[in-house]
Design a protein around this nucleic acid. Structure first.
Lengths: 239, 239
DNA sequence: TGCAAAAAGATTGTCAACAATCGTCGAGAA
DNA sequence: TTCTCGACGATTGTTGACAATCTTTTTGCA
């Protein structure tokens, strides 16, 4: 009983978790075709459970299935990321406003301590850790929990955050705004402490839209240097 | 080639659609155990596709699966409905604000015509149709489409609206606010026409939170008359 | 009589083979 | 040479049987 060989119960759920990880880390590339037989082989399971896992990932918007044509890893292009951040802003803004009313004093205090830990990590690694690590998600996740809205929690934790982590892996070395982000987090906690829901929402929305502006801008620059513009006309795309 | 016998391609997708309908209409009761073999028999398919359909419904939050214990229809209790309406308010408010900027004049005009059709139906049926029918969803769905945010559209159309329709079937005869609702819809279209995103958002949020207050209040009254309070103490609950 | 444990039954999870469908490659005609 | 049609191969969709797990019933003991 040293180590339970499967983190969750069924093979389909295990496969679902592993696939999620593989997609987020980029081990499975964006737009890549997912061959059922090959994946089943790789994870040592039958195609039945694997298909169930794919259906689950489809629900999380990590893969797109087309009947009789197979599943592909979702293409997280710029438009989709923009949509994602817009939805996230609305949802987390609401979470923050609600959390200001419903979180216990103890929970808010825990949040503040969490930020202190983050601050230490930032100093220790000179600004590297905060954004890259999952630490940032802890903060946002704790606030989602604080809203006491189970549907909102599921929505954020189950779907949006997976896509968001996928964004991060793609753009991790682009954005290095760890210190301003931490400062914004601190201000949010202050608003929560003051039980000022409206302010907390505004700060959270600004925090998220700021993050998007930063990422968006960095993508522009990256884009210009590489010039991977998608072919807008069909000028001999074959060769 | 008169009629394609299956609306969608795979059996799993067909089953998914049928199950969704069965759950929403209450043919499958809330909290009811879903026996795989029995359902597969009923729909004339194997258990494989049926299990995939269940996994898909789980993603839509219409059923809750527990490993090795089967799937049950979700319990749409009052708390969950409150959560649902809160999330919906945030999401549709955002959709409305964005739609005010992105919808074409033609689309807004179409919306207005839609409302006129609704008005006729209301007069013809003396206030019955509007809320009960899917007509209301058309309006909200069109605005979601107008946001041009695919993620938001999927979220609303694919998940929240199903649950919402489930609410309706449970509380359809409770709420009869068809005329005020139509009037609110008209004001929203006016705001869209004026391209006033902020006002459009406010009006939509008020519309939705008003709907929830109405439903919530009616549930209270229904509740009091029936007195189905959950047992708060264990006073011989067995008999 | 009441409780606990074990066996029986039912249900879910998994697999491997079969059928249906789609994409591709090549042959033939314009 | 290029387009179309048809056959082949590969992949997905589906099924039924088997294994693992949970639930219920029954039996034995205190």
């Amino acid at each position: 009983m040293l180590a339970l060989h499967t983190p969750e119960g069924t093979l389909a759920d295990v496969a679902s978790t592993k696939l999620t990880q593989a997609i987020i880390t980029g081990e499975l590339l964006q737009g890549q075709k997912l061959n059922e037989a090959e994946l089943a082989e790789r994870y040592g399971i039958g195609r039945g459970p694997l298909r169930e896992a794919l259906r689950q990932l489809e629900g999380m918007r990590l893969v797109k299935r087309i009947p009789h044509a197979g599943a592909r890893v979702v293409m997280l292009d710029r438009d989709m990321m923009a949509d994602l951040y817009a939805v996230r802003e609305a949802l987390e803004g609401m979470a923050c406003r609600t959390a200001a009313l419903r979180m216990t004093d103890a929970e808010i205090e825990t949040l503040r301590l969490l930020l202190e830990k983050h601050a230490e990590q930032i100093e220790a690694t000179d600004g590297q850790i905060y954004v890259q690590s999952e630490g940032d998600f802890d903060f946002h996740y704790q606030i989602a929990l604080g809203s006491r809205n189970q549907m909102l929690i599921d929505l954020l934790a189950g779907e949006l955050y997976q896509l968001l982590r996928m964004c991060r892996y793609r753009t991790s070395r682009l954005s290095a705004r760890t210190r301003p982000a931490l400062q914004q987090h601190r201000h949010i906690v202050d608003a929560l402490t003051a039980r000022d829901g409206e302010l907390a929402e505004i700060l959270m929305r600004r925090h998220i839209s700021g993050a998007w502006k930063s990422i968006s801008q960095m993508m522009d620059e990256e884009h210009d240097s590489k010039t991977i513009t998608y072919p807008r006309s069909k000028t001999a795309s074959g060769s």
